[in-house]
Design a protein around this nucleic acid. Sequence first.
DNA 1: TTTCTTTGTGCACGTTCTTGCATGTTTTGC
DNA 2: GCAAAACATGCAAGAACGTGCACAAAGAAA
Lengths: 252, 252
Amino acid sequence: MLTEERYQFIRDRLAAEGKVLAGELASRFGVSQDTVRRDLRELAKSGQLRRVYGGAVAPAPFAAATIGQRGSHAVEEKLRLAKAAVGVLASGQTLFIDGGTTNEAIARAIPRDVELTVATNSLGVTSALADLPLVELIVLGGRYVRDLGTCVGGDTLAAVAQLGADLFFLGSCGLDASRGVTAFDSAEAEVKRAMARNSAGIVIAATSDKLATAAPYRVAAPDAIRHLVVDKTAPSAILADFERLGAEIHFA
Amino acid sequence: MLTEERYQFIRDRLAAEGKVLAGELASRFGVSQDTVRRDLRELAKSGQLRRVYGGAVAPAPFAAATIGQRGSHAVEEKLRLAKAAVGVLASGQTLFIDGGTTNEAIARAIPRDVELTVATNSLGVTSALADLPLVELIVLGGRYVRDLGTCVGGDTLAAVAQLGADLFFLGSCGLDASRGVTAFDSAEAEVKRAMARNSAGIVIAATSDKLATAAPYRVAAPDAIRHLVVDKTAPSAILADFERLGAEIHFA
DNA sequence: TTTCTTTGTGCACGTTCTTGCATGTTTTGC
DNA sequence: GCAAAACATGCAAGAACGTGCACAAAGAAA
């Protein structure tokens, strides 16, 4: 019995029934439960199932429902980034959070026992925070843009102008030590600029593919970044540039 | 029986019927009530349900006012109402839609090929419409109120004031032919009043338990209702009153 | 062929998780 | 106010789990 055969059987069984039991698989394959557990661990690592006590279940449909191509590896990376990014939070703070899948992951990673005031123009972030009892949630309305999952426009700008925040979690941007933070869309950039202007510090959690890239619209100067959350594969030369400009580097 | 299976069953049951009983779940699963209570505690910790004495109910934004009433029959009734309510729409119209489970059902029932401009302060309605390609969606931001699932406050009022709509889908209210439309919350009523003021006509889809009830805060006069969508069990005497006041009655 | 490395597997051990029971507390209905 | 039901908490037994290690089979290098 090849390992791959077991994998395929598990995948099929999950698709058909939604769950598998470790003990049942072991007796069916004629191997020890340890081997089955190793299989499950391996498949879980690539997001093909979710391990639970006693076996495994089909993965959450959450990934499929949301935006873009986000491979399973990128999900894990974003989750690690999100957990590290939450580390810069302190109870009682006021935050701006804008759009992007990384920011949605961060919002979902905020623990239930932290007291915060959060203003966001992202539908995903709003949904993620809507249930947290200690979060005072302010929705920044405006024209909803499907492709971004956020609100933009004059109404959004007006709402931002009335608020001030300790930290601004800035998402889905290009990031370059000389050009600073840049966005791909004009209206989006306007809102980000307003949020940056009304915040004491900017937090950016960047997957490694965002580093050293630039987009047309300028959002913030490179020295405006207070916290930069990256994974351990980020080139140290680039990080050194940001550190020199005053950013605090956090590794996921 | 995996723990996760019990979780899933509870989630499904809550979505369908709005409530679960600890004792009933225990006998169905073949485990002790202690285990069921532990499950409920766990799900409550992540906001997936709200614990009550004897079991649990669906979390705030969806439970709204009617906890015991929303059996699977009530869900079906709301679906029928929603389909009928969509009948009053015409392509090219501009709508206000506020909160409530009935309005969320209506939003989900809007077909993909209708061109509309929709302004809403409800998170559920926003989520329902976010994917429709022909709907220009305007999010009315403000302070998010967990129990209502909507935004209220001065910012919301200001955003409403800048817009005008053909129809206002008014939800989760008391409804009485002499007192008109009434709401349970002061801030909520303010927003509804503003929407009513800036709309040419009001549409109300009411489950039969809403008819001939009243709440403290006045929202609109009884003769402001243009379309009233009810099921066939609605008392004809009450409907006659509304019809005399100028409402058009639609049966689901 | 012989030797070494790689990979997959099973076993032993300690750890963590789940569960039912016992106990004491809180809530509900009368 | 009282009794019963529902609940929270601590505890112990057992199941499931992770890890390190040994062993065997397959292939590569000498």
